[in-house]
Amino acid sequence: MSLQLKGRPVLVVGASTLAERVIPDLLDAGAEVTVCEGGEITTVIEAWAEAGRISLYRTTFTAAMIWGKSLVVLCDPGLRREVSVEAARRGTLVDDATGGEAADVRRVTGRRASRAGDLAGTVALVGGGPGDPGLITVEGRRLLRLADVVVADHLAPLSLLGELDPDVEIIDAAKLPYGRAMAQDRIHELLADRARQGLFVVRLKGGDPYVFGRGWEEHAAMVEAGIPVRAVPGITSAVAVPAAAGIPVTRRGLTHDLAIVSGHLPPGHPESLVDWPALGRLRGTVVVIMGVRNGPAIAAALIEGGRDPGTPAAVVQEGTTANQRSLRCTLGELGRRLVDEGVRPPAVLVIGEVAAADGAGGR
């Protein structure tokens, strides 16, 4: 069989002596040759690249390298399965110059299934942490890199999406505070639909999926739909954001209790499940997330419930990120300072002795 390669882009996987023997025939046929290394680059191939005869990726194979190629020539047996799977998915021919047996790609259904294995057709609810992309868990980042589809919230570490291959489908679920948001039922539909296509779906959420993240609703919806689902815990902003500002939410000899509450509904709202008078009677730390808009009413409710207006308080906005800023005040001043300082979500409110100025630190 003879292939017409004149003017055709060809990818050679591996820059070994085997590739040295393959490349001249491709060039003689008029192919436009690109080579990616497989752990080594021979001096001859280096010279061809410097002379402009070939293009050279000084990195190992990635799926994106196949884009637009008419043929892939495999010269690295260690990458046989991955190359075969990705090429088969795109309908690109593979010439295995290593002489090995063809990789079995029949069972592969997800785009990344050569690496994800039995994750194809499943959903992972991944907690992205408090904002800093470095604070996602190792497991969360591993699964994100295997994803075929990522359904991301606004508070997830979105900079990590730039590391994904260009063909990964990214769906913005928004969830902006008091702004636009994808309906929760629609999110459930998307997760189930993509998983039924045999794809591996990562639901990337801010903080921890099960700490005011509606993760359990999504878990239950997948179980009802018959979709295998798992949750990957994340670092919650309720603890990490104060820590980034030098505030320990517990402190030996100062507090033995910690309450984490959602402030998305104001005190007195008929749908609120928070016992604000009971919180006002506590001596320990109260951390409020999603409470910027209702902060003045929350502060007033805690004081009415018995908390001393002189109790130290702190606000940390966009914690753990480059835009982090924090302010210290008292509970009695908290409502006014939120308004005067123009604090915007996301921000965490901390009420208790741990927020005192002598514990200041962080950014």
Rank of each mutant, 00 (worst) to 15 (best):
Met1Val: 10
Gln4Met: 02
Gln4Arg: 08
Lys6Phe: 09
Gly7Ala: 01
Pro9Tyr: 14
Val10Pro: 00
Gly14Val: 12
Ser16Gly: 01
Leu18Thr: 10
Val22Ile: 13
Val22Gln: 10
Pro24Thr: 12
Pro24Ala: 06
Leu26Cys: 02
Asp28Lys: 11
Glu32Met: 13
Glu32His: 13
Thr34Ser: 11
Val35Glu: 04
Cys36Asn: 03
Ile41Tyr: 01
Gly52Cys: 04
Leu56Ala: 12
Thr59Asn: 06
Thr62Phe: 00
Ala63Arg: 14
Gly68Asn: 11
Lys69Val: 03
Ser70Val: 03
Val72Cys: 06
Val72Asp: 04
Cys75Leu: 08
Asp76Val: 10
Asp76Met: 12
Arg81Leu: 07
Glu82Gln: 12
Glu82Ala: 00
Val85Met: 04
Ala87Lys: 06
Gly91Ser: 04
Thr92His: 01
Gly100Trp: 14
Glu101Gly: 11
Ala102Asn: 14
Thr109His: 11
Thr122Val: 01
Thr122Cys: 00
Leu125Tyr: 08
Gly127Ser: 09
Leu135Val: 13
Val138Ala: 01
Leu144Lys: 01
Asp148Leu: 08
Asp148Cys: 02
Val149Lys: 02
Val151Leu: 06
Ala152Ile: 00
Asp153Gln: 02
Leu155Asp: 13
Asp165Met: 13
Pro166Tyr: 12
Glu169Thr: 02
Ala173His: 01
Gly179Tyr: 05
Gly179Met: 01
Ala181Gln: 09
His188Val: 04
Arg196Trp: 03
Gly198Ile: 01
Val201Trp: 12
Pro209Trp: 10
Gly215Pro: 09
Ala220Cys: 11
Met222Ala: 10
Met222Pro: 11
Pro228Cys: 09
Val229Ser: 01
Arg230Gln: 09
Pro233Leu: 01
Thr236Ser: 15
Ser237Leu: 10
Val241Gly: 02
Ala245Ile: 05
Gly246Asn: 14
Gly246Glu: 15
Ile247Ala: 02
Arg251Ser: 12
Ala259Leu: 10
Ala259Lys: 06
Ile260Ala: 08
Gly263Val: 05
His264Met: 05
Pro267Met: 10
Gly268Tyr: 14
Gly268Cys: 08
His269Phe: 02
Ala278Phe: 10
Ala278Asp: 14
Arg281Trp: 13
Val286Gln: 02
Ile289Tyr: 14
Gly291Trp: 15
Asn294Met: 02
Asn294Tyr: 11
Gly295Val: 13
Leu302Gln: 04
Val315Phe: 10
Glu318Gly: 00
Gly319Asn: 09
Asn323His: 12
Asn323Ile: 07
Gln324Ala: 03
Arg325Ile: 08
Arg328Asp: 09
Val339Glu: 14
Val339Gly: 07
Val339Met: 06
Asp340Val: 15
Asp340Leu: 01
Val350Pro: 08
Ala357Arg: 15
Asp358Met: 09
Gly359Ile: 14
